[in-house]
């Protein structure tokens, strides 16, 4: 919960060891093997995860996605923070 309140665009996030990801159709499923919690990411969410794994910080992901998608920075930042926040709360991401 603490993670959720402190989350900013400078946050460095990663997928914890106990979480596995798998492509299913055009989505990615993340499953926490310890808790059984799972989450499905649509193609945009999947791109977020792919960039996060490569870049590490939300800020870097935000910059890349702004180049790829037709969306305002404020809107995208709010969406990404909300998504990351939800995934942190589910134990599918952790702060590095």
């Amino acid at each position: 919960m603490e993670n959720r309140l402190m989350l900013t665009r400078d946050a460095r996030l990663q997928i914890p060891e106990q979480v596995v990801t798998r492509q299913v159709g055009d989505e990615i499923v993340l499953l926490n093997l310890e808790s059984g919690t799972y989450f499905g990411l649509d193609p945009v969410g999947s791109r977020f995860l792919e960039l996060l794994e490569a870049e590490g910080t939300l800020a870097a992901v935000l910059a890349k996605m702004l180049e790829e998608f037709d969306v305002t920075e404020a809107q995208l930042e709010a969406d990404l923070l909300r998504l990351a926040d939800e995934m942190l709360a589910s134990g599918l991401l952790v702060t590095a």
Binding site: V20, R22, V24, E27, V29, L31, L33, G36, Y38, F39, G40
Partner: peptide, 13 residues
Amino acid sequence: YLNTAARNVRLYE
């Protein structure tokens, strides 16, 4: 659909 995906991910693990 996601529930099946998650269960199967676990099964393959």
